[in-house]
């Protein structure tokens, strides 16, 4: 226990508020995530969980509070005692240790699978093409798509595309992985292969934040389940407690639809 207590959280979120015009989507989020932790965020549509995820790597700017990843405040820096907005390039630099997997996969359609994976390592992280290729092929093996290295995304099924997208995000050796509803755009029979890949990653100690509707995945793979509703965290804890024995009426109502 003492080891855990002395470790600093990888992600620190304090009183985060976010509005789109008049609509307040996040109404004060507080959350600490330890290195190696797998956090699954559940909640009904419109509860703000995807927006919250996108705030963590500053795809959305927050209006109040702060978010820090690996000890660095995201999107801002302290200079002469005053907080100033980072330049676009400064934000880009912060994002380089955070991997992200999108609902719509968003593979680069004009590049082959291999080119998709080595694009960031070679172009941004300065790895040699040879090392990046070797690493990419190992990652493809890990997600079970070794023979697809030369294919274009369009030639793959949705499940295969999402596994490539996961390999692409892993290729930058991220400290944190964000999954934004990674199985929501998939046909039901393809969901399993993606979840299996993610379960593997969870076991290997990668820090993950997963927004999903897959209760089964949350139960098996999560260290902690966060239930969001109406822009707030209403319940949070071990999956057995939150899913098995929910306390808050909103959590109960949400989970009852999956039983």
């Amino acid at each position: 226990m003492s080891a855990v207590q002395t470790m600093n959280p990888l992600v620190q979120v304090r009183d985060v508020h976010k509005s789109f015009d008049q609509l307040e989507v996040l109404k004060g989020i507080d959350l600490d995530i330890m290195p190696g932790e797998v956090v699954v965020i559940l909640g009904p549509s419109g509860s703000g969980k995807s927006t919250f995820l996108r705030c963590i790597n500053h795809l959305e700017a927050i209006n109040k509070g702060f978010i820090a990843v690996d000890g660095e405040q995201i999107g801002y820096r302290l200079r002469n005692g005053r907080l100033e907005k980072l330049s676009a390039n400064g934000i880009a630099r912060q994002r380089r240790k955070i991997g992200m997997v999108f609902q719509q996969f968003n593979l680069y359609p004009h590049m082959t699978v291999l080119q998709n994976i080595i694009e960031a390592p070679v172009g941004i992280h300065g790895e040699s093409r040879q090392d990046a290729t070797r690493n990419a092929l190992q990652l493809l093996e890990r997600v079970g798509l070794s023979e697809k290295a030369g294919s274009y995304p369009r030639q793959l099924s949705g499940g295969q595309q999402q596994r490539v997208a996961i390999a692409r995000a892993l290729a930058i050796k991220p400290k944190l992985m964000l999954f934004d509803e990674p199985t929501s755009a998939l046909d039901p029979e393809l969901v399993g292969e993606v979840l299996a890949t993610m379960r593997d990653l969870a076991k290997q100690g990668l820090t993950m934040i997963v927004v999903t509707h897959e209760i089964g995945f949350a139960r098996e793979a999560a260290d902690r389940v966060v239930f969001m509703d109406d822009g707030k965290i209403v319940e949070m804890g071990r999956p057995d407690d939150v899913i098995g024995n929910p306390q808050h009426p909103r959590t109960k109502a949400f989970l009852s639809r999956f039983l």
């Binding site: 790597n57 994002r95 694009e119």
Partner: peptide, 14 residues
């Protein structure tokens, strides 16, 4: 597709 720009941003591309 707007998602392409967003992905490039998320990967820290300038």
């Amino acid at each position: 597709d707007r998602g392409q720009t967003e992905t490039a941003e998320a990967f820290g591309m300038t």
